[in-house]
């Protein structure tokens, strides 16, 4: 179901504050949520048609008092992201994809966009001088395999 104006404002403010995504871009999205998941899409519901899931992409998870962005939406935002990017080198990327936390001494805090070369790979988190990847496990394994093949 559509989110309340308050939650919508919270979500768009989060993406603008954390990742530099203009609210004007996010205003084009219809945002829907259930108990935990939040979805954003540009399509509209159609009369008499039951959708197996919400339109568009999962853009976040809503926990009490916090909001977690998703890798799939950060990847879709790509070059629109202008803040909270953390660039990683190949060896560190491998460790992150294996599920390890790696030392982090940069200035970013909280949720970040993991960047490898020029590409946004997905969501990470900086906490207690450590960085970890929050990319879904299956996608992490796929990327790890690709990196093994091509390096």
């Amino acid at each position: 179901m559509p989110v309340s104006p308050e939650l919508r404002k919270e979500i768009t403010s989060f993406y603008e504050r954390q990742f530099g995504i203009p609210e004007s871009f996010l205003q084009e999205l219809a945002i829907e949520a259930n108990k935990e998941e939040i979805w954003g899409g540009t399509g509209v519901s159609l009369p008499g048609i039951y959708s197996a899931r919400a339109i568009g992409l999962r853009i976040g998870r809503n926990f009490p008092g916090s909001f977690k962005p998703t890798s799939v939406f950060l990847s879709a935002l790509g070059a629109r992201i202008s803040r909270s990017e953390v660039s990683i080198e190949l060896e560190d990327l491998r460790k992150l994809l294996l599920g390890h936390r790696i030392p982090y001494s940069g200035t970013e805090r909280g949720y970040v966009a993991l960047k490898y070369r020029d590409d946004i790979l997905g969501c990470g988190r900086c906490h207690d001088s450590k960085l970890r990847a929050l990319i879904p496990t299956g996608r992490r394994r796929e990327l790890l395999e690709i990196l093994r093949t091509h390096s």
């Binding site: 999205l29 954003g40 899409g41 399509g43 959708s51 197996a52 899931r53 568009g56 992409l57």
Partner: peptide, 11 residues
Amino acid sequence: NRLGVLNTMIT
């Protein structure tokens, strides 16, 4: 998801 499609409803 992989291709970043935002306007699609799955039925």
